[in-house]
Amino acid sequence: MTEARRPVALVTGVGRRAGIGAALVTALAEDGWDVAFSYWNAYDDRMDWGRDADSAAETTRAAEALGGRAVGIEADLARPEVPARLLAQAGAELGSVRALVMAHCESVDSSILTTTVESFDRHFAVNTRAAWLLIKAFAEQFDAPHGTGRIIALTSDHTAFNLPYGASKGALDRITLAAAHELAGLGVTANALNPGPVQTGWMSPDTERDLARATALGRLGRPSDTADYVRFLCSARGGWINGQLLHSNGGFPH
């Protein structure tokens, strides 16, 4: 008797072990998925937190220790040809992708008065256009049974003084929710998930304190909180949740 093949997920935005993306990879591996994941070191290099040089290798090892196959793929999602290549490489390495979980982002604080055209365009290229092209490529290769496919996009409603990030995430929401209807014939669910403020190393002590105080449960989100929601949505039990903008934020006001 041949061993049943594990379903395959693709998780984008797995640049650092402290991030949400790495928690998603290990949670899905624990739940029986093989996982391809993408990262882009050049983004981390220009952010204050810097590159986590061992992230891809350690995330792969962590997933494999949980019984799954895993492969990390460096991918510049600002380039329009890359999303289709990413799905093709994930398929070649592990098999057709059944769950697409988009945790990647471009996020550089700026306001209406200080945002540059170059930054605005880069945010929309990464956060919006790449998501559309990933969903398109996912749908074109999808061959799993009706009702088993999943698309999940991590989103945000933080717009003031974070204009290009919030605006591009708002457009991401609309694309993701459209997929729930346009891909209905494939039996694929599509939801956008807002995790609220999650401490992954980007907050100052003052910001961390203020956001924790503003949250009804009195603490910040953890990557594992988001991963728990995503693993439920990817399970058979989450299959009736579709076309929704969801929140998993401990009661943070929005």
Rank of each mutant, 00 (worst) to 15 (best):
L10R: 04
G13H: 02
E30T: 14
F37K: 00
G15K: 00
T12I: 00
G19F: 13
R17Q: 14
V35S: 08
V14Y: 00
P7R: 05
R16N: 03
W33Y: 15
G15L: 01
V8Q: 06
L10I: 07
V35F: 06
L10E: 01
R5G: 07
D31G: 15
R6H: 14
A23Q: 12
V14C: 08
D31Q: 14
L28R: 04
F37H: 01
D31H: 15
V14H: 02
R17M: 11
V8T: 08
V14I: 02
E30L: 14
L24Y: 10
T12M: 10
V25M: 11
R5N: 08
L24D: 02
L10Y: 02
W33F: 15
L28S: 01
F37P: 00
L10H: 04
R17H: 10
S38D: 01
R6I: 06
I20H: 11
V14F: 02
G13Q: 10
E30G: 11
R5D: 11
L28G: 04
I20S: 10
I20T: 13
V8W: 09
L10M: 03
A18M: 14
V35D: 06
D34M: 11
V25I: 13
A36G: 13
A29D: 01
R5S: 12
V11L: 07
T12A: 02
I20W: 13
A29W: 05
G13V: 03
G15S: 13
G32W: 09
A27E: 06
I20P: 03
